[in-house]
């Protein structure tokens, strides 16, 4: 029995191959990459304008952010838009509805692990093409205050990986609702709206009024976007940010496993 089970090493290799294939696939669409960058740059300039005007209107400082830090926050954020999954994708729910999920279950790697590997590969390619041009443009236009230590960047990279994992887990959980209900589009849209607001995509979460800030800190959303920016910017303790991210990843990972196990036992796939 155990002889036919793939070894742990070959599973890890399979996950790595999934991630690498996803990485290469993204880099094929050159025109799409350029178009995304153009959009990213324009939105970055608009966002930087707004935050700089707000800092100026507040007398030079908002919640620990001066003009240069606000500008850095925007351009680091523009590096992450498209790396961290921010927009509703119902791909998995469609696979469940169509029955394609049966194929995923037959693979030699656990399904959630396989999907996550592909997501991390996609994110890595997106990060690779974005970081240099976005930071260069930020430095030229509105200025950057970024760390010189390689260690800070490494911690930032780790935080980005955790943020991608966590954001993926959130989408996965909402998509898995398809195991119980027919149409998940409404849930996906509602989730996206709340996530986009509370993760720190538009303004730093510490700029929120107290009541909204308190609500935000009780959710995993700041760990999906604001946390890696804070780690690179040096706002607060990076270890605390990473610890909170890890705790949410563990929590949502457990929830995913429970939901998958319960949902799959009642799932019926038609045909053979």
């Amino acid at each position: 029995m155990t002889n036919t089970e793939p070894s742990r090493l070959s599973r890890v290799r399979a996950l790595w191959e999934l991630a690498a294939a996803s990485f290469r696939r993204q880099l094929r669409y050159r025109v799409a990459i350029v178009a995304t960058m153009v959009t990213n740059v324009v939105f970055g300039l608009v966002r930087a304008s707004l935050l700089l005007a707000a800092v100026a209107g507040a007398g030079g400082m908002i919640a620990g952010y001066d003009a240069l830090q606000a500008s850095t926050y925007v351009w680091l954020g523009q590096c992450l838009v498209g790396v961290i999954p921010m927009w509703a994708s119902s791909e998995l729910a469609q696979r469940i509805k169509a029955g394609d999920i049966a194929v995923d279950l037959l693979r030699p790697v656990p399904p959630a692990g396989g999907w996550l590997a592909a997501e991390l590969g996609r994110a890595a390619s997106a990060l690779l093409v974005r970081v240099a041009p976005m930071l260069a443009l930020g430095a030229i236009t509105t200025g950057l205050a970024i760390p010189g230590h390689a260690g800070d960047w490494l911690l930032g990279l780790l935080s980005v990986a955790l943020a991608v994992t966590l954001a993926f887990q959130g989408w996965l959980l909402v998509n898995l609702a398809a195991l119980w209900v027919l149409e998940v589009r409404g849930y996906l849209n509602l989730y996206m709206i709340v996530m986009n607001l509370l993760c720190g995509l538009f303004v730093p979460v510490s700029w929120f009024p107290d009541w909204l800030y308190a609500i935000t800190l009780a959710t995993p959303f700041p760990s999906m976007f604001q946390a890696p920016i804070n780690v690179v910017l040096g706002t607060g303790s990076p270890w605390l940010a990473l610890g909170v991210q890890l705790a949410w990843v563990a929590g949502l990972g457990l929830a995913t496993q429970v939901v998958l196990r319960r949902g799959l036992t009642r799932m019926v796939v038609q045909g053979g």
Binding site: A54, A56, A58, I62, F202, V203, W207, P209
Partner: peptide, 8 residues
């Protein structure tokens, strides 16, 4: 949020 921080 922007105007909460910057009155003008």
């Amino acid at each position: 949020v922007l105007l909460h921080n910057a009155p003008v």
